[in-house]
Design a protein around this nucleic acid. Structure first.
Length: 281
DNA sequence: AACCAGGTCTCGA
DNA sequence: TCGAGACCTGGT
């Protein structure tokens, strides 16, 4: 299918989603209960497996006018240059249950570990798909069966089980959540044990279309401190970013995130490369 | 082998 | 409302 301005690799490798991995030229992943293989050639997006174009357009937010968003958030040289480096990266529109349950697990863990935890949860609780992969478990599946201890979630296990049960029992209402505005949604989400400021913002941004949400993790905090001279509480930094970048602050946040991520990876690989010497004893 | 990780909770001021 | 400390576990 033809796509507008879009960069599949930047998009899937931006830490928004945890069930995708690259295999040669292809990206393979499971979204809900869809198993997908994707490859991009220029403005052609090639799909194997579940080839639902309407789904892909919605999932990758191909309806967003990226150029208009860039024009809106490019309020300083710094963000402009980062956008230029990662042009085509889009926010991903995730389903609320999967997104919220995933980010509940994401706290205080690095991306490789988050991926492992989620795969483990899917393998032990999710439906087995035709190709041998596993669907993301429903609230019901997660609330009841499955060996959650085997998933090595640490203290997150109780949060997840508890959240799944309250969703299953209708005590936490995802349909209601979808009707709330940004501030209300964040407040409602934070009534869940394990969902605080940052995770609530991730859910609002990645699954509720609240593009003004600006999750602040350690990288965004670092970027805001080093590039904009802003530091302090979560509220202070997040609100400053929202004021500065405007109604698409969430997009700006994601560009800063991917830039920080690549910078850190580069530093790490440099530090370990042959040629760096360990100090003599 | 330390340090860190897409943070949250609890508690005291 | 804010800051400080604890926290499962595993990646790097």
């Amino acid at each position: 299918m033809r796509v507008p301005l879009f960069h599949l690799e930047h998009t899937l490798d931006s830490g928004q989603v945890f069930r995708w991995s690259r295999s040669g030229d292809w990206w393979e992943g499971v979204v809900g209960d869809r198993s997908l293989r994707l490859r991009q050639e220029g403005d052609e997006l090639i799909a194997q497996g579940d080839r639902d174009e309407a789904f892909l357009r919605r999932y990758f937010r191909l309806d967003d006018d990226l150029e208009a968003i860039y024009a809106d958030i490019s309020r300083d040289e710094c963000i402009a240059s980062v956008i230029d480096r990662f042009r085509g990266m889009r926010l991903i529109r995730q389903e609320v249950w999967e997104c919220s349950a995933s980010y509940l697990l994401a706290s205080y863990a690095n991306v490789p570990r988050i991926k492992k935890m989620i795969e483990s949860v899917c393998r032990t609780h999710g439906r087995r798909l035709a190709d041998g992969r596993y669907a993301f478990p429903t609230p019901e599946e997660l609330a009841e069966g499955g060996d959650i201890a085997a998933c090595r979630l640490g203290y997150r296990a109780e949060w997840l089980r508890c959240y799944a049960r309250s969703v299953r029992d209708g005590e936490f209402d995802l349909d209601l959540l979808r009707t709330l505005d940004y501030g209300e949604a964040v407040g409602y989400l934070k009534t869940v044990k394990g969902i605080g400021d940052k995770v609530a913002d991730c859910i609002a941004l990645f699954s509720l279309d609240h593009l003004q949400a600006c999750p602040v993790d350690v990288r965004i905090a670092r970027a805001m401190r080093e590039r904009y001279g802003v530091s302090g509480s979560y509220k202070k930094v997040s609100e400053h970013a929202r004021r500065h970048f405007g109604r698409y602050a969430g997009y700006a946040q994601e560009y800063l995130y991917i830039a920080e991520d690549r910078t850190q990876k580069k530093i790490a690989s440099t530090a370990c490369s042959p040629g760096t010497r360990t100090p003599a004893p």
